[in-house]
Amino acid sequence: MTFLTRPPTPFRRLGLTGSIGAGKSTVAALLRARGLTVLDADEQARLVTDEPETLAQIGLAFPGTVRGGVLDRPALGAVAFADPARLAQLNAIVHPRVRARMAALETQAAARGARWIVQDIPLLFEGNLEAGMDAVLVVDAPLEIRVARVMARSGLGREEVLARDARQMPADEKRRRASVVIENAGTREELGIQVDAALQTLGITPELPRA
């Protein structure tokens, strides 16, 4: 198990991550049901990309993806995910704003007395953010299960899902860097048992009765 050093704070951070289709959002919901504060980087990114200043920058960098003050997310995804350099350009616009929002939400949670704060970040390792965590929980599932899940929820084709997965850090490397790995190939009940075991391993006490 790997715990990473970071400057002391009134609370501790648990990084939550996993490859595309692993079921990280389901684990996040189970953690919330156990009373933990979970901050969702994807949710904050969606909010950030609704802000006029962010939209203006995206519109300049990616012409045609902002129409009438509204972001065309599929069009932006098609452009950004097709080219690593363009994706890096988009991330340079969005990620600093997301980090600022996450930091503000952490401050609010700490003021409420949260002892552990979960940061749900899909690209935690890719963004070199693990050094800011006290522990990292990785959710994983076999590749074919992950691909099927993403295809079912998004309408993307198999090759497109595989291409997006290939742009992330390999699942095996994420597992190697994890403090705890949760295997999400079974039922939600089985997943809940693993979540409870992971919290026990990490010394995290649920702050509300289990839902």
Rank of each mutant, 00 (worst) to 15 (best):
M1R: 13
T2L: 15
L4Q: 05
R6K: 12
P7E: 03
T9V: 05
R13G: 06
G21K: 02
K24A: 00
K24R: 03
S25A: 09
L30Y: 01
L30T: 05
L31C: 02
R32N: 05
R34C: 03
V38K: 08
V38P: 04
A41M: 08
D42C: 01
Q44C: 13
R46P: 00
V48N: 09
D50A: 14
P52W: 15
E53L: 13
A56F: 08
G59L: 01
L60Q: 13
A61H: 13
T65P: 01
T65E: 03
G69V: 14
D72G: 12
A75R: 12
L76W: 03
A78R: 12
R86Q: 11
Q89D: 06
Q89V: 06
N91C: 08
V98M: 01
A100M: 06
A100W: 15
A100C: 15
M102I: 08
A104E: 15
L105F: 00
E106W: 08
E106D: 10
Q108T: 15
A109E: 07
A110P: 08
G113N: 06
W116K: 00
I121K: 01
P122I: 04
P122Q: 04
P122S: 02
L124E: 01
G127F: 04
N128G: 10
E130R: 02
V136N: 02
V138S: 00
V139S: 03
E144W: 14
E144R: 12
I145V: 14
M151C: 05
R153T: 15
G157W: 13
R158L: 14
E159P: 09
E159V: 04
V161T: 12
R167A: 04
R167W: 02
R167L: 07
Q168E: 05
Q168A: 09
P170W: 06
R177T: 09
S179W: 12
V180S: 01
V180H: 04
V181N: 05
V181F: 05
V181E: 00
G186L: 11
G186T: 15
E189F: 02
G192P: 02
V195N: 00
A197M: 12
A198Y: 00
Q200F: 11
T201F: 12
L202S: 01
G203I: 09
I204Y: 00
E207M: 11
L208H: 15
L208A: 10
A211W: 11
A211I: 09
